[in-house]
Amino acid sequence: MRNTARKIYIALIFIFLYAPIFTLMVLSFNASKTRAKWGGFTFKWYSALFQNRDIMEALVNTLLIAVISSLVATVIGTIACVSMSGMKRKTRSILLGITNIPMLNADIVTGISLMLLFISFGIRFGVGTILLSHITFNIPYVILSIMPRMKQLNPSTYEAALDLGASHTTAFFKVVFPDLLPGILSGFLMAFTMSLDDFIITHFTKGAGVDTLSTKIYTEVKKGIKPEMYALSTIIFVTVLLLLILVNMAPSGKNEKADK
């Protein structure tokens, strides 16, 4: 009895969580243009999507921005973690607190602040400003995922490498970096995901005529919802889902091995 209740409860939660997305996915395969009735299964919205030049351009922008911004953020975040680990405990925890704030900050505030900053410095809006914004909001996520690994690190391993004759650079890349790698990878993937599905900050920092997928969907939907957008949203959802699964698998696999 209790077991059945438990199962129903879980089922309800999943229905509430995923019914909207499921509806969207189903509609993306609906041959009929109206949402009201099922006109048969089709891939035509998907093919229409890939023939739409505006959307393809937005896709390229999105991927470009996601790749570059997460790469740059990963490099900056890694360096930040390494330097912070050398600081005194108190300074480090203050700094970590400060780097965490942007994650808690409302996206709209971050977006508007960045927009104002770009305006006051006279920077022209475009892909560059989106890129800068994405790097900015990605860094904290990278730090968040590397720092725990940094703390687990045995400080003696670095010294041991020096002791065995390695230079500081060799010691870092041969000994510290491999230990940090799972954290760096999951930080990169997290940043990539964040960049991929960001709308608000992009919306405020993009120039006219430049679009990422999320802002493109937004403008298209304003004009009236086309089924291509269902297809596009489905693709984005599935991509982000896959990335999230990757992020969660990468570090846990390593940890199990280390815990043994």
């Binding site: 391993t157 010294e159 041991a160 065995l164 004759g165 390695a166």
Partner: peptide, 19 residues
């Protein structure tokens, strides 16, 4: 610096390279 000294250290927590 340590990497130029003719002595080697055995650390308290072994400090083996786990990977």
């Amino acid at each position: 610096p340590p990497n130029k000294r003719q002595l080697n250290t055995v650390f308290q927590k072994y400090a083996l390279f786990t990977h």
